[in-house]
Design a protein around this nucleic acid. Sequence first.
RNA 1: UGGGGCGUCGUCAAGUGGUAAGACACAGGAUUUUGGUUCCUGGAUUCGGAGGUUCGAAUCCUCCCGCCCCAGCCA
Length: 566
Amino acid sequence: MASIDLKPASNFIRNIIAEDQETGKWDGRVQTRFPPEPNGYLHIGHAKSICINFGLAAEFKGRCNLRFDDTNPTKEEQEYVESIKADVRWLGFDWEDREFYASDYFDTLYAFAVDLIEKGKAYVDSLSAEEIRSYRGTLTEPGRESPYRNRTVAENRDLFERMRNGEFPAGECVLRAKIDMASPNLNMRDPVMYRILFASHHRTGDKWCIYPTYDFAHGQCDSIEGITHSICTLEFEDHRPLYDWFLDALEIHHPRQIEFARLNLTRTVLSKRKLIRLVEEGYVTGWDDPRMPTLSGLRRRGYTPQAIRNFCERIGVARRDSTVDMALLEYCLREDLNRTAPRVMAVLRPLKVVIENYPENHTEMLKAVNNPEDPGMGTRQVPFSREIYIERGDFMEDPPKKFFRLSPGREVRLRYAYFITCVGVVKDEKTGEVKEVRCTYDPATRGGDAPDGRKVKATLHWVSAPQAFDAKVRLYDYLLNETSEPDAGKDTPEFKERINPDSLTVLSGCKLEPGLAGALPENRYQFERLGYFFVDPVDSAPGAPVFNRTVTLRDTWAKIQKQSRG
RNA sequence: UGGGGCGUCGUCAAGUGGUAAGACACAGGAUUUUGGUUCCUGGAUUCGGAGGUUCGAAUCCUCCCGCCCCAGCCA
């Protein structure tokens, strides 16, 4: 089936590149990169960046590199590079043979540093970390120059080499750029270029005991890779003058940096720090918990790469801070799943219905359509018998005016089966709870059409009791409750107070049509009238699938109920 | 109170001097064996505010207001 790739809409980065192509600024070349730090899992905010970088490169017949910014061995691990690669691949992007690491360039970066020392533009500082901080000044006051700032080139060269040789303990000294301690831009107040870290690196092992800072590495890595458009988020805008300074001082290729606003989403968190707290404090089961906005979480929830890519195209790219409504993500998901997911009948909260005038010990097979949106997906047979299950919520003994499902005396259609009429209920004597509904059926309505043309207001899904397959189903809801503050500003309650205690509901004994016994991990289905479900690849066992609700169907009735409740 | 950004419908977002795209959400209606899908229809006399330039401004100028980022040897 044709996919639903959207035509690109105008955004300022696309416009810049298009203009560069027209003017031949980069000789028609477009080279971007997605530069994650391998210190955590990717989330949907990263997906935005991935789609921008890989998407723009593809659109303009360019290339996009995958580069790991692994300059801090104390935080980075191989496990993360593997998960990042898996996530980017899953999203549908291919970096071919262009898998790079900042650590690939450590030798070059070291040479760059020496070059700056030779040019008198870098020096070894022996101030402590605390001293450097206090010498830096504040937002409103200029900093002071380090007493070590005017060491000779020879001395700096010697000291830096000794740093590299491991002659100093961590923290003893650092290499700094000699720029301007009075700059109103704090990034220009002699930033640290190299620090001593006796940590083994996931790729270079113990080869180095000094590591470049992000600020000294990022721009040069982009330069080395011949990046034309260095796309990053807004918080790096203040660093741009510094990157420019390094590139100019080093006299090397100078990419153009373009900043855009990071993604924020309602009803969830996207900051790495908060995500870690959710995991570590046990609010979720892990980084791939289906409630998490991580790509691994969304994948396990049942999201499709196509839906996420379309979402990223629809949200646009701009420089203003914004928070996208989760409803848009869900819209993109349903749009994709509606076309592709086979329909099936499943009763989550079963209520038994006995059809009094249907023969006992009899079973017949009825034809059901697999996907009304795609006739090519064919049909299947489902069993029907005297006892069936319907959804508890589809029956009301004393219904309000707008409820038009089953209730005493009312006739409804059982999808693909018969019209049935409620003729009575059986209640628990003590609690008054409805235990069973008694109905009669009209044999003339087989398949769901009345020959006399009479209409019915509702069509219910159902599952034949004797053949029903029992399974566990998990219903997921948003991680966070709604906030009255539209934008998560300073005055919003601490996010933990907003955590939704009902983000997970586990249902067992759900009644599914028998064909689902063979559901395989990662299969997707639409449970008619309920939503889209995904067979969990971790918790399912052969013959015992566990279904995760990916997203509900749009539910007008639920909306009406919510409104009438006030 | 230093520097850097940003303010267009409830939420995203086009638009860059010629008279406010689109999407989601929302509200009506039609079709429907999923209260699903699909399909119509409705909505900013107005672009943070106030002045100014101009025949004409969301787009140019001035002032003001609000929000975000920066004081890691994190990225």
